[in-house]
Amino acid sequence: MFHNNNGGFLSRYLIAFCVITTGLCIAEGILGSLLLPDGRLPYSAYFVPPVFGALTSLTGLVMESRKVLSVRQIAFRLFLQWLLILGLVFGVNLVIGYRYTPLMVGIVTVEVTVIFLFVYLVMWLNERRIANAFNRELAALQSRQDN
């Protein structure tokens, strides 16, 4: 995971994919039982969360840059990523013929935003875990050097 530069992107992509897929399954379960309690879905519905998980995780590419980005640039790219995900979700549903009511637009936007923030929270917690482990090893290394 730490030995090459592509490993960083791959691990972030996999974390995003797993969190988004899980988040979509939970959101579908909650929203479905609230808004369409009598609805029935075919087996193919099982593929929707992983397909959307894979597609929306790819939007993480907008965060890749050769330059060291400033906090402002990162914030802008995060906003761009959020817009891309919304465009992807609404775009795919429009293409397959689904028509959203204004209420559904609002609900889906909130759903996407919550999952988006949750993905970054999980990634941040993972990075904090790595940083803590690093700091322990660094202190041990420096202590060995001092002695």
């Binding site: 960083g8 972030r12 965060m63 906090v71 790219r77 990634m123 990075e127 940083a131 690093f134 700091n135």
Partner: peptide, 15 residues
């Protein structure tokens, strides 16, 4: 690295 105090996570994969 011998003058590094610690690292902390920043936004989007940076530290």
């Amino acid at each position: 690295l011998m003058k590094l105090g610690s690292i902390s996570p920043a936004l989007a994969g940076r530290y």
